[in-house]
């Protein structure tokens, strides 16, 4: 394909220098970090490095801890993403006018500035056994003591973790779907579907759903990755075993036992491999090289 950019305008010193800065600040450290992690994990670096060995990898392969952690992280991220898409689509479709004017149109933007740290602290205050929800239950006469309130923090279903992630993600996808609904003229497409004999269910299943998915796939994957590797929220609200992958990696990295450090790096490498594959899948036919 013939390029639409003339050679005269393509090559500019300043722009190339700016990108070189990104490579130095952003990409090279990542490459160096990955190489170091790999070297550490096979005994070629670090205080324990005594020559090449696959012992750390083979010992980890036999332990369920890291695999369970990866699986738990993936399940929590998937469950949260499913609920996010459901809630986001419901709010975006059900509140189309309200999302453009009035109180809703302002308040829905608030959580976009909410750090995960604060979301975690808020959920801790709201859902712990002496939290706000427990007090409401007490006022309604459902419980008498905090201990009677069902565990939602450090619980086996990770309800608190999911709730905190939802606070961050639902408003984003509500706004995103609302924008897609407008820009893709979904209202008109749905009316056409009805005119052609389709039902409202067909609009959802055959028009809105596929378009939301196509336009939102890269966003969904990036959010999934953010939740999969989330740290602050599971640190404060998550259960101790199995821990989510970032928490486990950090714990193994910070342990006094130096033998656990290679395991931290292996967990980091496994995480990187999974996430890289996901990103490549998400962007495989995303038109990154499109002429905008």
């Amino acid at each position: 394909m013939k390029s639409w950019v003339s050679e005269r305008l393509r090559h500019r010193g300043w722009e190339a220098s700016a990108f070189a800065i990104y490579l130095v600040v952003g990409v090279l450290p990542i490459a160096a970090g990955l190489i170091y992690a790999l070297a550490y994990s096979v005994g070629l670096a670090g205080l324990l490095g005594k020559g090449f060995t696959l012992a750390h990898w083979t010992s980890l392969a036999g332990q369920a801890e890291v695999w369970l952690s990866l699986l738990t992280s993936a399940l929590i991220a998937a469950a949260t993403m499913f609920l996010t898409l459901l809630a986001g689509a419901c709010f975006a479709l059900g509140l189309r006018t309200r999302l453009r004017q009035g109180v809703v149109a302002y308040v829905v933007y608030f959580p976009l500035a909410l750090p995960a740290t604060v979301a975690a602290f808020f959920v801790f205050q709201a859902l712990s056994d002496a939290g706000l929800l427990a007090r409401v239950f007490h006022a309604l006469g459902f419980i008498r003591r905090p201990g009677e309130f069902p565990a939602m923090i450090h619980d086996s279903w990770s309800l608190g973790v999911i709730a905190a992630f939802l606070i961050l993600s639902v408003p984003y996808f509500t706004l995103f779907f609302s924008q897609v609904y407008r820009t893709e003229h979904l209202e008109e497409l749905c009316r056409l579907t009805l005119t052609l004999g389709g039902k409202r269910r067909d609009c959802l299943r055959r028009v809105i759903g596929p378009i939301f998915w196509r336009r939102g796939r890269s966003h969904i994957v990036l959010w999934f990755i953010a939740m999969f590797g989330g740290y602050e929220i599971p640190l404060l609200l998550g259960r101790q075993t199995p821990q989510m992958i970032s928490v486990l990696t950090m714990r193994k990295y910070q342990m006094f036992d130096l033998a656990s450090k290679p395991q931290a790096f292996i967990a980091a490498l496994l995480y990187f491999a999974i996430v890289s594959l996901l990103m490549l899948w998400a962007f495989r036919d995303e038109r990154l090289d499109r002429d905008v």
């Binding site: 990108f19 990104y22 490579l23 952003g26 990409v27 450290p29 990542i30 160096a32 970090g33 990955l34 170091y36 992690a37 990036l222 990755i225 953010a226 999969f228 590797g229 989330g230 740290y231 992958i245 970032s246 990696t249 950090m250 990295y253 931290a264 790096f265 967990a267 980091a268 995480y271 990187f272 996430v275 890289s276 990103m279 962007f283 990154l288 090289d289």
Partner: peptide
């Protein structure tokens, strides 16, 4: 363009904490 843009997404392939553990030595 496509190759560079994929590189621009590189940091997003890491959780900040996991990236931090790999970067600290540097």
């Amino acid at each position: 363009r496509k190759r560079w843009l994929l590189l621009a997404y590189a940091p997003y392939a890491f959780s900040p904490v996991i990236l931090g553990t790999c970067l600290l030595f540097l």
